[in-house]
Amino acid sequence: KFNKELSVAGREIVTLPNLNDPQKKAFIFSLWDDPSQSANLLAEAKKLNDAQAPK
């Protein structure tokens, strides 16, 4: 279960257009550290992506 959630969340995070590479890497490392938090980490990444969207 975690492997699928981890890969789905990881793929989504790397495609978020408004995150820079260090931010993406930080989220990916957090996913590896605790795969059970993949849904929460993906939600946080999406929030940050939205907040950094060009206005």
Results as ranks from 00 to 15, higher is better:
L48P: 00
S36L: 06
D50H: 07
L16S: 02
L16F: 05
N3V: 12
A51R: 10
N18M: 02
Q52N: 05
P17G: 05
Q23Y: 03
A53E: 08
D50F: 08
A43H: 05
T15S: 13
N49H: 00
E5S: 11
E12G: 04
W32L: 10
V14N: 12
A9L: 12
K47V: 07
K4I: 11
F27V: 00
F2D: 07
A9C: 08
D21N: 08
N20Y: 08
A39T: 07
T15K: 14
W32V: 06
D33F: 13
A43E: 09
F29D: 05
K46Q: 08
W32P: 02
Q23T: 04
K55F: 10
D21I: 11
A53L: 05
S38D: 04
G10C: 15
E12F: 15
K1E: 13
S38Q: 07
R11V: 07
K47R: 12
L41N: 02
A39Y: 07
A45L: 01
K25P: 03
K55I: 11
A43V: 08
V14D: 09
P17N: 05
P35A: 04
S30M: 14
R11I: 10
N20L: 10
S7T: 13
A9Q: 05
D50A: 12
L19K: 00
A45W: 02
L16I: 02
E44A: 12
I28Y: 03
L48A: 03
I28A: 01
K55V: 13
N18C: 08
D50L: 09
A26K: 11
W32I: 09
A39G: 07
N40E: 11
E44S: 07
N3G: 13
Q23A: 01
A53D: 08
L41G: 02
S7R: 10
S7N: 08
D34H: 06
D33Y: 10
N40L: 14
F27W: 00
L19T: 00
A45M: 02
F27A: 00
N40W: 14
P17T: 08
R11K: 09
E12L: 13
A53Y: 05
D33S: 14
K47F: 06
D34R: 03
L48F: 03
K55R: 11
F2K: 07
L31F: 02
P22F: 15
G10A: 15
A45N: 01
F2C: 15
L42A: 03
T15M: 14
E5Y: 11
K47P: 00
D50V: 07
A26I: 08
S36V: 05
Q37H: 05
D33I: 13
D34L: 02
I13L: 05
I13A: 01
A51S: 11
L42G: 01
N20I: 05
A43P: 00
L16M: 11
A39N: 08
N49Y: 02
K55G: 11
W32H: 06
T15G: 13
N20G: 05
W32T: 06
N40I: 11
G10Y: 15
F29L: 12
D21H: 07
S36A: 08
P22Q: 15
N3Y: 14
T15Q: 14
D33L: 15
N20C: 09
L31C: 06
W32E: 07
P17Q: 07
L16Y: 05
K24M: 03
S36R: 07
K25E: 12
A53K: 09
S30H: 11
K4C: 15
D34T: 07
D33R: 12
A26L: 09
A43Y: 10
E44R: 08
A26M: 11
E12P: 01
L19P: 00
D33W: 10
W32M: 10
N20D: 09
Q23C: 05
K1V: 13
A26V: 05
K24R: 07
L42T: 03
Q37W: 04
T15R: 14
A43D: 07
N49D: 04
V14M: 15
P17Y: 03
D50N: 07
V8T: 11
A9G: 03
